[in-house]
Simulated scan of single mutants.
Amino acid sequence: MTRVVIADLRTGDKLVDMPVKSGDWEDRLNTAESINATISVRNPAVQRLSPRSATTPAKTILAIMEGDLVMAGGPIWARRYDRDRGTVQLGAAGMQSIWDHRLILPVLARTYGLNQWIIPDPTDATKTIPNPALASSYTGLWLGTILKRVVQQAMAWTGGDLPIVFQPDEVSTNTDHDRTIQGTDFRTVGDFIRDTSQVIGGPEVNFQGRLRADRKGLEFLFQTGTGAQPLITSTSDVTWDLTAPESPISNFQVDEDATKLASLAWQVGGRSTDTVMVARAADSTLTDAGYPLLESFDSSHTDVSKQATLDGWAAADIQNAPLETWSFNALVNGRPSIAEYSVGDFHTVKIAKYQRKLRIGDPWYPDGGTFRRRLVGRSGDHRGRIVKLEFAPALEAS
């Protein structure tokens, strides 16, 4: 049964089912989910819930559930009332979205003297440096645990509490994982999470909504990949037979995007140390195959101060094949059901060899075959009948 629910953002409490006219959700890898719902204020069942106060933006969670399974949920950020239609449109994003509104600062920054944020450089009296007392420094920890620490620090501020639970800590002896964020950078937690997850070998992240053990509220598990397995994936082994008789799959589509192809990638950094750093990565795979030289340039990581980190960003920008996305629709409660797989899991898709006269197989993939793909997105609506699945090539397997 599909449910649209409302809960308090800071506690996850006051979980109530909200009748809706329509709704939809989308969950994509490493990004905040999207949740939308339209309610009718003329509906007596809605009126009994005091909808204006029950759906206050930035104070309330909107989530869509299949039974006890949270498909997507997070803060309501926008709503639109239409008096003529008697409707309210609610727009929410996953719990990761709130971190674009929080900075990486220790709690003492709230009262620290503003004239003390910059201090004289102890090694050069003619210069100044950011006050290290306002820095957030992390050493000897895996990147996923550093992200955990940054989120926990933000939650320690008055009013920063949220219904988030965490994985155990994980140490690391790799000094390339050490991070220092100066208070004067005023860097958002959200930017730091995205940047850290995008470095080569960095952890994937997810704020997985779930029903609390007491079944009276929601909580969100902050998942990160581990040092041994940076990808967030389960042991689920799902197989789809695209061309089988009475296949549960419909609307199969393939999208290819070559706009990010790059054989030569450049990055610049060093702003935080008042120097200029340049990183370069090259790969001749495409040019050897007859493609023209294609380059990329990125200046969005100018605060990077380690050459190895900047080199990693450049290497990550090399792309030797168009981004190919497969998508199809499946039944929510079919076989397999939506409860058997999550975003990030690896799947097998089978396509029979194409036989035109027998109408078997697929003419775009005439040789057929067995293809390994990774689920990177899924979406659905308030009806809970069909789920759209999006897959990327499985470059790494669990």
Rank of each mutant, 00 (worst) to 15 (best):
V343P: 02
F252M: 12
E66P: 00
L114C: 01
G270H: 05
F252H: 14
V343A: 08
S296P: 01
P322F: 03
M277R: 15
I351M: 09
M95Q: 13
S305R: 10
M71F: 05
V238N: 12
V16H: 14
D121Q: 07
F346P: 00
A58F: 13
T184R: 13
A213W: 06
D27H: 11
R52K: 11
D237E: 14
V332N: 08
G140R: 11
A265E: 07
F297P: 00
L331P: 00
T111H: 13
D255L: 00
D362S: 05
K127P: 02
L162A: 08
L141T: 03
T31S: 11
W240R: 09
H347F: 06
M155V: 02
Y81L: 09
E219N: 07
I338N: 08
T325W: 01
A125W: 11
A352F: 03
G209C: 04
S342F: 01
S197C: 03
A339M: 03
T55M: 10
W313V: 04
I61N: 07
W25L: 02
K14M: 02
T180A: 02
E204F: 01
F220I: 03
F346K: 05
T287C: 02
L395W: 12
D185R: 14
S337V: 00
M65K: 05
L310C: 06
S247R: 05
F252K: 11
T235A: 09
T126M: 05
P366T: 09
S97K: 14
R385F: 01
D84H: 10
L331I: 01
